[in-house]
Design a binder for these strands. Structure first.
Lengths: 121, 121
DNA sequence: GGCCATACTTACATTTTTGTTAGTATCCTA
DNA sequence: TAGGATACTAACAAAAATGTAAGTATGGCC
């Protein structure tokens, strides 16, 4: 019978770190796919099947999972349109739109950093 | 001898995602400890032993590992001062200082988001 | 000689994240 | 009646991140 350590330092550290707003913010958008999804939605809402086509390397599981998390975290809105076959659309929320200018800056910074690294060597 | 699947989708996806500057930037600072370390260094350089005291929940292994990565990525500078016992100091680099205003905005955004979530429910 | 401090490294274990494959329900169309 | 399209879900497997515990080298101090 496998022992479980629910009080593992691992999960304990988690909570502590979330005390930092910065860490909290990064947690919301980190992971392999989240920003990619948000980027796709930036130009306007998309339905599930389109998202899947736009992100050819994501697995169904991950797409569904990340969408659910993003929704739970209030970063996207899910809307179901009645009909058969079913149709579900995803859109950015006001708060995640406020993130856009910041992620643009981060993007610039990333580009600058990358250039520095390749030039520097 | 353990088999390695170098062609796993996992590592494959990694490379693809790094094509995005945003993703690249987030990769540099994500992980449980990196921004925490950067935040500590913000006010000025610190030596290893001080960092460890300031981050009571990090393990030696992780601290050393993250410091090495941060250095490799050009985000901090490591300086060794001769003597016994040895003394090593870490400082932010110019490029990581340019990150500060961005991370401050992200921090504000995180605070706003958190408030929304607690209020909204 | 034995212990202390510093700044790490190493081997191994556990937890967390991501991927793979197959399956669900509905109704339309051929 | 069989197969297609949509938007998922579930069980299992692999990979990646983090944690634990112990060890290394140097020289000063008692």
């Amino acid at each position: 019978m496998a022992r479980r350590k629910d009080t593992s330092t691992n999960s304990f550290n988690r909570e502590i770190l979330n005390g930092s707003h910065l860490h909290y913010a990064l947690d919301l958008i980190s992971g392999r796919w989240k920003i990619l999804i948000l980027e796709k939605l930036r130009a306007g809402g998309l339905r599930y099947s389109i998202l899947r086509k736009e992100l050819p390397h994501i697995s169904e599981r991950m797409l569904a999972l990340q969408l659910k998390e993003l929704e739970k975290d209030g970063l996207i809105t899910r809307s179901v349109y009645a009909g058969v076959p079913p149709c579900v659309g995803y859109t950015l929320t006001p708060i995640s739109e406020k993130l856009i200018p910041i992620w643009e800056q981060l993007c610039c910074w990333g580009a600058a950093h990358r250039e520095l690294q390749t030039t520097g060597n």
